[in-house]
Design a protein around this nucleic acid. Structure first.
Length: 206
DNA sequence: TCACTGATACGA
DNA sequence: CGTATCAGTGAC
């Protein structure tokens, strides 16, 4: 197997899913602690994974930018009302985006995974992304789902068991925070510093 | 910079 | 039915 990428060196050899209790913390804490964790997806084509380097917190009832604002409950947002650790996928235009459900049952909050640093299955990810430049393979919420093979079939699954799960990864040296992206019509909510990323990481979305 | 894509939800 | 949304791409 060719190791054609220098960013493979995180010193991580074995990994397994986190325990379910990992998800039992506030949405803002979870959004930060997820940075550096490994997001793994297993499919018939093989396993692909990447370190999470950018997240955004969405806090249902009090967040105008969230799909679940004011407890809006539809077929799409239903899983956000479930227990933390569920997979919330939805389709935006032609792209599928993936979130980690957080918060207590009936508190519809979630963490959007915006970017990952490719780790395992890089050839597979490049193939799925049509041979785009390495630095663009997973540097955006729609890009990483395509690269990892995450689809609406993952909706409602749990992030603590295959075929899709979170595993411990590396500890970021420094974390940056700032306003979220792509939510211009959300009143005050657009200014909340609920976007988190690994400082200086080249795979953070532009 | 801009337009096209075209799932889903919501309001008219 | 028209419009907006937690984008990405490719043509200018």
């Amino acid at each position: 197997m060719k190791q054609n990428d220098k960013k493979l060196s995180r010193g991580l050899i074995h990994y397994k899913p986190v325990e379910a209790v990992f998800f039992n913390q506030s949405t803002l804490e979870l959004a930060k602690i997820l940075l550096g964790c490994l997001l793994v997806k297993e499919t018939d084509e093989g396993t692909a994974s990447g370190f999470i380097v950018e997240t955004e917190a969405y806090r249902g009832p009090l967040d105008r930018a969230a799909h679940s604002f004011n407890n809006r409950r539809t077929k799409r947002t239903e899983v956000m009302f479930a227990e933390a650790g569920r997979v919330y996928t939805y389709v935006m235009h032609t792209h599928c985006l993936v979130n980690v459900v957080s918060g207590e049952i009936d508190l519809p909050e979630a963490v959007l995974i915006r970017a990952v640093e490719p780790y395992e299955g890089i050839d597979l990810m490049l193939k799925r992304r049509g041979g785009t430049a390495m630095k663009n393979v997973t540097s955006g919420p729609g890009k990483l789902t395509k690269a990892l093979g995450i689809t609406m079939e993952d909706y409602g699954r749990r992030f603590d068991e295959p075929p899709i799960y979170i595993a411990p990864g590396f500890t970021p040296e420094d974390i940056s925070t700032g306003p979220r992206i792509g939510i211009p019509n959300s009143g005050e909510a657009k200014d909340y510093p609920w976007r988190f990323w690994v400082s200086g990481n080249m795979y953070v979305s532009k």
